[in-house]
């Protein structure tokens, strides 16, 4: 690791001020950033740890019934405290492993926007609102491609607000070695329609499968997805699975997610 300074602000305002320096980088739980620093793939002059900012931690419900999660809230805390949105709590409880979940944060995951991460699927699939230190960004505007988001330099995710659907489930087909999703699908049924968000599959990162959403909004049943498919050309192809395989899995996992959500189940993580 290259040397850097470390700042540990206690408030959002102090963190924003510390991040104004050139090459300063926010540090969430560090479960991606620290390994990245070790590989010398990033070389910030200063890390600003968000760990000590109490106002960015915790889970609550707002007047609109949305689940509001502080940006520095760990996956473990979300899994324990977001019980009013069971599919979201379940998703958080299956990210990484227990030690990762005790450090990794929702803000860190969404800011990184790994194309195989779980939280982007929940945020996009729920139509969440990403709250930063200076504005609110709709999930539909926030995710802008692999490792790319609407965040500006030095902007911090302070909170994420999730509308709670009547039915939702997350189906994760894992790559058995890394346990990241090879393809995972988050399906959420709201009164005004169904949202389907796919992670792990596309070279553009998380995306909504509009065709399936239209079909499922008319008929929330697995067979509504029959005959629909995504174009393999934009999918990730690697030694773990071809583009065509991932495109196929998108359909299979969407059906499974709908079936689970309709049955009141929250999700399954499997490699078969």
């Amino acid at each position: 690791m290259y040397a850097f300074e470390m700042e540990r602000p206690q408030t959002i305002a102090d963190a924003v001020a510390a991040l104004k320096d050139e090459d300063a980088q926010a540090l969430g739980g560090g479960q991606t950033l620290i390994p990245t620093l070790k590989q010398r793939l990033a070389m910030p002059s200063k890390l600003v740890s968000l760990h000590g900012i109490a106002q960015m931690k915790g889970v609550c419900t707002d007047d609109d019934g949305r689940i509001c999660i502080g940006g520095a809230t760990t996956h473990q805390q979300v899994s324990e405290s977001a019980g009013d949105y069971p599919a979201l709590a379940w998703l958080a409880s299956r990210i990484g492993d227990p030690a990762v979940r005790n450090r990794g944060t929702i803000g860190g995951s969404l800011a990184n926007n790994d194309p195989s991460a779980c939280y982007p699927a929940a945020a996009l699939g729920s139509g969440a609102v990403i709250v930063t230190d200076n504005r609110e960004i709709a999930a539909d505007d926030y995710f802008q491609g692999m490792f790319t988001t609407a965040l500006n330099e030095g902007e911090i995710i302070t909170e994420v607000k999730f509308p709670v659907p009547s039915h939702a489930a997350y189906m994760k087909f894992i790559q058995p070695a890394s346990r990241f999703p090879l393809v995972a699908v988050f399906v959420a049924k709201f009164d005004d329609g169904v949202r389907v968000a796919i992670t792990g599959a596309s070279e553009e990162g998380v995306f909504r499968w509009g065709e399936a959403e239209s079909a499922l909004s008319g008929n929330f049943a697995p067979e509504a997805v029959d005959g629909l498919s995504v174009d393999p050309s934009g999918m990730i192809g690697d030694l773990h699975g071809t583009k065509e395989y991932r495109a196929h899995l998108v359909g299979v996992m969407t059906k499974r997610a709908v079936k689970a959500a309709a049955a009141g189940e929250t999700g399954v993580s499997s490699a078969h």
Partner: peptide, 21 residues
């Protein structure tokens, strides 16, 4: 996971947290 310790009672990978944290 060989480096797992407990920090404030929670299992954490000691190679993936800075001492200052």
């Amino acid at each position: 996971g060989a480096c797992v310790v407990h920090v404030d009672g929670k299992a954490v990978k000691a190679c993936t947290i800075f001492a200052l944290e």
